[in-house]
Simulated assay, not measured.
Amino acid sequence: MDIAILGAGSWGTAMAIHLNSMGHNICLWTKNPNQLEEIKKTRYNKKYLDVMVPEEIEITNDIGYALKNKKIIILAVPSHAVRNVVEDIKNIIQDDAIIVNLAKGIETTSLKRMSEVINEMIDNHVVVLSGPSHAEEVCRHIPTACVLSSIDIKACEYIQDVMMDENFRLYINKDLIGVELGGSLKNIIALGAGISDGLGFGDNTKAALMTRGLAEITRLGVALGSDPLTFLGLTGMGDLIVTCTSMFSRNRRAGIKIGQGKSLSDTLDEIGMVVEGINTTKSAYKLSKIHNIEMPITNEIYSILFEGKDPRKAVHSLMTRNKKHEMEDI
C-alpha cells in the first residue's frame, strides 16, 4: 500500500518504520524543515527516536505531495494540532481515503474527541488506533497489541489487514467513544503516577492511583456513552499500566518533575515534547463539571497544574475524603 503519515514525531516515525518493514510504501510528512534535513542527511530523528529511519521511507514537507494518490492517511500529530492539519488537507485528500488517527486527546475548546473533530470537517472514514504502545518499542518490533475502532467496522477490518503483523497485533472494538476516552484519560492518571514518584511515594500509592483512576475514567466514560467493559481492555487498563509505569511515558516523566517541585512551564521545557495529559486534564475537568461526574484524582491534578496546589496537599485531600464503599459507583 501507498501510505501517508502526517507528523514525524516519535509515533509517526515508529509507525513509518513498522509499516515499511511490512513492505508498504511510506511517505512521512513533517512541516519542520530542520527535522526534514536531519532525517534526510542522517536517517535519524534524534529528538524523538534513537533508531535509524530506513532509506525506503520517503520524507517530505510538501503535504500535497505526501497525500497524492494515498488511500490511507495516518494522522500522527499531537491532539491540539489535529484540527489545523485536517483543515489543511480537507480539500486535497481523496474522497475514499481512510484516516487513521493516532492522537490521544480531547479538544480543550469544543471538548470533542479526535474522531469528532476530524468528521466535523471531512466525511472520510476515521479509524482510531489506541492502546499500550510506546513508540520506542514499536519501532524496534517488540511485540505490541492495540485496538482499532470506528463507526465503520469494515474500515477497521481493512486497516487491521494492512497494519497487523506478528509483532503488532490489532484487535477491533466497536465502542469508539470508550476507545478514544480510554486512550486520552489515562494520561491524566499517568501524570498523577509521576507526581507520586516525584514525591517519593511507593508501589502502594501508584496501585491505588491506577485503580481508583480507572474507576473515575469509567464513570466519565459511561456518562458519555461508553461500554464500561472497554476500560478493562487494552485502551483502558492496558494503556493505563504502560503509561503509569514506564519512563518512556512523557506524562509520567512530567509528573515526576512536578512532584519534585518544578513548575509546569519548566517541566514542559525540560521534556521538550508534547505532554498530552496536560490539556486532557483541562478537558476532563470541564467534562466532569458539565456532567456532574465525581473525578477526585482529576480534580486534584487540575489543581496542581493550573491552580498551584502543593502536590502533598493534593494527596492529603484525596486520602481524607469522605468514607466510601469501593463498589458504590457500579
Rank of each mutant, 00 (worst) to 15 (best):
V126L: 12
G308S: 14
K186P: 04
R250K: 14
G7K: 05
R252H: 01
I304D: 03
I297W: 02
E87G: 10
G9R: 07
A103T: 01
S150F: 02
K70E: 12
A284H: 02
G233P: 02
K309H: 10
G131E: 03
L224C: 11
P132R: 00
Q94F: 07
W11K: 10
P78L: 12
V275K: 01
D50C: 13
Y65D: 06
R250Q: 00
N20G: 10
I122A: 03
I271F: 01
E180Y: 09
N91M: 09
G198C: 11
K31A: 07
L176S: 14
Y48I: 01
I195K: 00
A14I: 12
L181N: 04
Y65N: 10
E300S: 08
L148F: 10
N32R: 06
G225W: 11
V222E: 04
R113A: 01
R83Y: 03
K289P: 06
E116Q: 11
I122G: 13
S115L: 11
T243G: 05
K90I: 06
A254D: 03
D50K: 15
N251E: 00
R113K: 12
L268F: 04
S184N: 08
V77E: 13
L19A: 14
G308A: 07
K70M: 07
T109M: 07
D50N: 14
L28H: 08
T245W: 00
I57Y: 02
P78G: 13
D95M: 08
C139D: 13
S79N: 14
T267N: 03
E136R: 08
A8Q: 13
P143W: 04
R169W: 09
A103D: 15
M327Q: 05
I17V: 11
K71F: 04
G23A: 15
L220H: 06
R83K: 15
D165Y: 07
M1I: 15
S115F: 00
N101T: 15
G272M: 11
N251R: 07
L234V: 04
V77K: 03
K289A: 03
G198H: 00
L19M: 07
Y65I: 11
I59N: 05
I258G: 01
P296T: 05
V275I: 11
V127N: 00
I241M: 06
D2E: 13
V85R: 06
T280R: 13
F168I: 08
S303D: 07
M1D: 13
S21E: 07
L318P: 02
P54K: 02
S21H: 07
G192C: 04
I151N: 11
D95R: 12
A314W: 05
Y48D: 09
A14Q: 04
K282P: 00
T218V: 13
M273V: 14
I17T: 02
S150L: 10
I59M: 14
L240T: 07
L6P: 05
V179Q: 03
Y44W: 12
V128S: 05
S130I: 02
L19V: 12
K206H: 01
V77H: 06
D152W: 05
M247Y: 13
D62W: 04
V275Y: 02
G308W: 08
V315I: 14
K323D: 05
Y48N: 04
A97N: 12
L181R: 02
M237P: 09
G12Q: 04
R43T: 01
A254E: 04
E270Y: 12
I74W: 01
Y65H: 13
D95E: 14
T320S: 14
I290E: 10
A16T: 14
L111M: 09
A66Q: 04
E328V: 15
R113Y: 00
N84T: 10
E37Y: 08
G198P: 03
